[in-house]
Design a protein around this nucleic acid. Structure first.
Lengths: 153, 153
DNA sequence: ATCGCCATGTCAGGATGCTGACATTCAGAG
DNA sequence: CTCTGAATGTCAGCATCCTGACATGGCGAT
């Protein structure tokens, strides 16, 4: 391999995908015994941090479309983990909230996910962790820098 | 936000997902005019680097299952971009190869993807790019630190 | 007040990606 | 040689995730 400076970008993109893929796989297998998928967990985590937010806001927070988040919510609702208000207090957005059983389940899930995240950066010093965070943040800035004022779906 | 040292792991996991999500979105929109999806592009790229590899090897290289890669290959085959040998020279693995039209299309696609990767790391110095690569590599090492010789599907 | 804009929710369809399960084929252990 | 194991391909089913399109409910500008 031994990447040259020229194609470092492609290599970084590849390694980025590889890292995310490995992290996702680890979280999936840790959550499976709890009957939760990673998107479901992300949804519950967001709801705990911000109770009563709408499906669209959840979608943005989880980096998926409204439709996808809606499908996830239907699944969680069927299992009695979340409750959606019957009527919207204003506009069309119906607040979503966690149920009691969801809070208990989420506590267990959060612990497992946190352990995996800790594992991932176990080989990095504190300074390196901050650097990594900084570098990734700058990558995001560049990627989202400007966009298309035209095609917004 | 202002993350404390305690939950840096979770924050890094989140930022990692965010970065990958932004990168994927950019690549998706760059490839759409060419009629290619990101998984399809990844498959073609792998095939160009290693002509004649099997569907299973492609799957490993793209971090997906054999079944998923097979579905991608069917789509590419229907569009005349790849050819699968009718018979396996040995075992069951049938070599897959690019067609002429795929080579031309891939050249254009590669250029666009490379531009996006360059953009992503535009704000990083050469030293920082190497550091980022190093840190991510160490994260992968920790995440894949094998422990389940059993569950291999 | 009415029009146009935007955000939200929703339906339809397609592509991606997974687990589980099974048959086939080669290579190596006995 | 035979039998076991590993790798490959494939079918079925489900969850995720997308684009496109449409209807509805606030909100600001005219």
């Amino acid at each position: 391999m031994r990447p040259t400076m020229d194609d470092l970008g492609e290599v970084i993109g590849y390694v980025l995908k590889r890292t995310q893929s490995a992290l996702r796989a680890r979280i999936d297998e840790a959550l499976r015994p709890l009957g939760l998928t990673t998107p479901q967990y992300a949804c519950l985590e967001l709801l705990q941090r911000t109770p009563g937010i709408s499906a669209s806001e959840l979608a943005r927070g989880a980096f998926v479309t409204r439709q996808t988040m809606n499908a996830v919510l239907v699944g969680l609702q069927d299992r009695g983990l979340v409750i959606r208000a019957d009527e919207a207090p204003t506009g069309r957005a119906r607040p979503v909230r966690l149920t009691e059983s969801a809070v208990a389940l989420l506590a267990e899930a959060s612990g497992r996910v946190a352990a995996i995240n800790e594992l991932m950066i176990a080989g990095l010093t504190d300074a390196e962790r901050l650097d990594l965070l900084d570098y990734l943040g700058r990558c995001i800035t560049e990627l989202e820098g400007r966009n298309d004022p035209s095609g917004l779906t």
